[in-house]
Design a protein around this nucleic acid. Structure first.
Length: 378
DNA sequence: CGAGTAATAT
DNA sequence: CATATTACTC
């Protein structure tokens, strides 16, 4: 046993990071030590990718793992430096600047965690922003957001993560993250409290256009596969130096109509009195979704109309159709919206309307839509 | 400009 | 084939 630990063969799995560090510290041979560390970090990262799929269920694991990875990496760098010039420093600086700062150990940790938490929140709410290399930008972005979270106006807003998304994309470029970028938009599930829609903002399109054209359209994985099973599996490094920036009519990235978004759409629709009488502009304004363009709504409406025209029989029989609703709303009362018994959502949506379901979230059984924030019209 | 629709792309 | 974007007409 001890032999093993001393030998620290590649298979040896230390119980804790500190243990591991202690082990490493015992190793005198620099190359061996670094290889040990590298291997361990690699495994950590592997696992991280795996559990990333369950990030919602295992947020703490994510954090811990990430922290561990960070720490080990830092440690590795530190040691390498120490190789060159022996310095007597206490380790566990956690992360500071990639340069070295002194041995600030005390309060830093806490602050760190806090920030991480905010990041985590972001993941949960909309995008998967995970990058342990350049999360600084993320943090900055978040700083404002989370602090200023009191925006009662529209709960639904474009994931203002376009910058983040950019970073993410960049990150994807240099490191494979198959399962990461995808979920950003489809992952959006009702997070109980914060309903959020996934929208791609026009601004984003620039960034996307570049990497999208160069790389692939996977950036906006709407219907794309998913399943995090192969997350750790595929590794493709495609790094292209984005030769062309903006030229030609760059196509807007596809807007993914998440269930939430669509629900919003339908809501607006019925509030406006039906699919046939509502106009795109009205809908858009009513939806109050930032970044949502008129054309997009129009397009969606077109599709929607087609759909409900296509299968009216069954729906009509259900007498709860949106078509009829337009008529129904005549004598609307305060809660006319409640017509959801046979709400347009059911039949219509069932047709496969809301397709951008999350892949990672296996519990798609939450078909039960959380009741929306009803507009208590005065 | 906005709505509606067809054509086109992914 | 479904879905979303663009182009076109009114």
């Amino acid at each position: 046993m001890e032999l093993l630990s001393l030998d620290s063969s590649p298979l040896f799995v230390p119980k804790t990071i500190t243990d591991f560090l202690a082990q490493l510290a015992a190793i005198k041979d620099g190359s061996q030590r670094s290889s040990e560390l590298d291997g361990y970090v690699k495994r950590l990262e592997d696992e991280f990718r795996k559990i990333e799929v369950f990030k919602r269920e295992l947020p703490l694991c994510m954090l811990l793992l990430k922290d561990a990875i960070e720490l080990l990496k830092e440690e590795g760098m530190r040691w390498r430096r120490m190789e060159e010039r022996p310095v007597v420093e206490v380790f566990i600086p956690l992360k500071g600047n990639s340069e070295e700062d002194g041995g600030l150990v005390s309060g830093k940790e806490n602050i760190d965690k806090k920030n991480w938490m905010s990041s985590a929140q972001l993941w949960n709410t909309s995008i998967n922003v995970f990058d342990y290399t350049k999360r600084d930008s993320v943090e900055l972005k978040l700083g404002n957001e989370e602090d200023d979270r009191s925006v009662p106006e529209n709960p639904i807003e474009v994931s203002n993560n376009r910058a983040v998304e950019g970073a993410l994309l960049a990150f994807r470029g240099q490191n494979e993250l198959s399962g990461f970028a995808k979920p950003c938009l489809k992952e959006v599930k009702e997070v109980s409290e914060v309903p959020n829609l996934c929208l791609m903002t026009p601004l984003m399109s620039e960034a996307l256009a570049c990497s999208a054209s160069a790389n692939s359209r996977t950036s906006n994985g709407c219907k794309g596969s998913g399943s995090g099973s192969g997350v750790a599996g595929q590794v493709k490094l495609l790094n292209k130096p984005q030769p062309q920036q903006q030229q030609q009519p760059l196509r807007k990235p596809r807007r993914c109509w998440s269930p939430e978004l669509h629900r919003r759409f339908v809501d607006a629709l019925q509030q406006l009195g039906g699919t046939e009488v509502a106009t795109p502009k009205q809908i858009r304004e009513l939806m109050q979704v930032e970044g949502l363009t008129n054309d997009e709504v129009k397009s969606h409406l077109q599709k929607y109309r087609l759909h409900i025209r296509k299968l009216p029989p069954s729906a009509a029989a259900g007498q709860g159709n949106a078509l009829l609703m337009s008529l129904d709303h005549s004598g609307d009362h305060s809660k006319a919206n409640n017509v959801q018994s046979g709400s347009p959502q059911g039949p219509l949506l069932a047709g496969g309307f809301a397709k951008c379901r999350s892949t990672t979230g296996g519990e798609s059984g939450n078909s039960r839509e959380a009741e929306e924030d009803e507009k208590s019209d005065g």
